[in-house]
C-alpha cells in the first residue's frame, strides 16, 4: 500500500490536477505552462495557508 504523507498527497494531487487544467483551459503551449504553474501554486499555497489557519484555531 502506498502511504504518502499529507503534504506529499497534496503535492501529487496539485501536480496532476494542474497539468490537466493547464492543457484544457488554454490554447497555446506557453499559456498552458503558465496557467498550470499558477494552478499548482494556488493548490499548494492554499493548502499550506489553510493548514496554518486550522493549526492556529486549534491552539
Amino acid at each position: 500500500m502506498f502511504r504518502p504523507s499529507h503534504f506529499a498527497a497534496v503535492v501529487l494531487f496539485a501536480l496532476f490536477a494542474s497539468t490537466v487544467f493547464g492543457i484544457t483551459m488554454r490554447d497555446n503551449t506557453r499559456a498552458m505552462i503558465r496557467y498550470g504553474a499558477y494552478c499548482f501554486i494556488l493548490f499548494v499555497g492554499s493548502a499550506i495557508v489553510l493548514s496554518w489557519v486550522m493549526f492556529l484555531i486549534a491552539r
Binding site: M1, F2, R3, F13, L15, F16, A17, T19, I23
Partner: peptide, 21 residues
C-alpha cells in the same frame, strides 16, 4: 504531447488512488 500528458496525469492519479486503497 497533450494526450500523453493527460493520460499520464489521469491514469497516474487513478493508479495512486488505488495504491492508497
Amino acid at each position: 504531447g497533450r494526450g500523453a500528458l493527460l493520460a499520464i496525469s489521469i491514469i497516474g492519479m487513478f493508479a495512486l488512488g488505488l495504491a492508497m486503497q
